[in-house]
Nucleic acid binder design. Structure first.
Lengths: 180, 180
DNA sequence: CTGGTATGTTGACAGAGACAACATACCTTA
DNA sequence: TAAGGTATGTTGTCTCTGTCAACATACCAG
């Protein structure tokens, strides 16, 4: 038949799996289902992904790329809001990226993608001198934790205004503590 | 036989699953494996848990209880360190509690347990007036995000000193912004 | 045109979740 | 104390999934 070769099965699988991901969650993702949706036999995916986890890693990598692009568009304090906005817009993708289900060490490009996104945050704190890394780490922690907790439903509110208020209440101090 | 009734299978299953959880991760948790370890047939767990997710929810509930106790022992700024310490000491448990794999709405006692833990944090910010809730939310976000990012290996350091430095760099401001 | 490689297919197996039917221990209560 | 109902386990079965192995077909280089 003419479509014995799918021509771009890898991309098709990622597309279908991506759709499934946001609709049904990570647990519902299966290679066989993706293959079915791509109109291909149950074992075809193995020609492109050695196992399920590698497919998940590829989906996560996509996520890091998008997140990086979103952050690139912003600067300063808006970056934090953009981070949270990404998480709220793609909850399952975000969980996949940061849920610890993927062994980061096995996929160096994943860690690199994450680090690249973090670098943008880091740059925003270049004025903080020796504690720049620490302040950046704190900022990342803040927006990251806020994203997670909102997604998990631990806060009553989850609108953009709430996010802004929470982020606005935080200051980053450099040097010896002097109390607020 | 004398042990047809296990007498406390539910507790035994939670114990075995708990061990398995920290050693192998959430994905490796299976009802059948827990049953095997408890020396019981593959379907016995269903007399105590309607499905796998409910077992996971029970494990998460245990985690929230322990976390709450740890936080109770501390006060003020040490609470944040205790939070992170808990996450680092029980990484898989922490992920289970906050990984979004469990539909919180289906297990009200879970949300209650989490809220109870949060209440302790909240109390530490009672002096912040009208913005107390917001400041507490920010503090929770900070320690929560820091825990996650360290667990995921996104920071080079993960020792107690690093945690202290990150937490120390943050101030919580109340009222109209006035910059730090 | 021919052989090698990339890509798919069919077939099979084991492990898991879940349901049903059956068995046995326990416990109330009449 | 005997009877019957309920709680707890067991066996059997089904479907789904990941994964391996063997085979088939398309494509490409020489």
């Amino acid at each position: 038949m003419s479509t014995y070769h799918h021509r771009d099965l890898r991309a098709a699988l990622l597309r279908e799996a991506g759709k499934r991901l946001e609709k049904q969650g990570i647990a519902a993702l299966s290679l066989r289902e993706a293959a079915r949706r791509a109109g291909v036999s149950h074992n075809a995916p193995y020609r492109h992904f050695p196992d399920r986890e590698t497919l998940l890693a590829a989906l996560a990598a996509e996520g890091f790329q998008v997140l990086g692009q979103q952050l690139e568009k912003t600067s300063g304090r808006e970056m934090g809001e953009a981070y949270v906005r990404f998480a709220l817009a793609h909850p399952q993708r975000f969980r996949l990226m940061f849920g610890g289900q993927i062994a980061l060490d096995k996929y160096p490009e994943l860690r690199a993608a994450a680090a690249s996104a973090f670098d943008r945050l880091q740059a925003a704190f270049s004025g903080y001198g020796g504690e720049a890394r620490t302040a950046a780490a704190a900022a990342w922690s803040l927006v990251h934790g806020l994203s997670h907790l909102i997604l998990d439903g631990h806060f009553a509110q989850r609108d953009e205004d709430f996010v802004k208020r929470v982020l606005a209440v935080v200051r980053f101090a450099v040097g010896p503590q002097r109390s607020a």
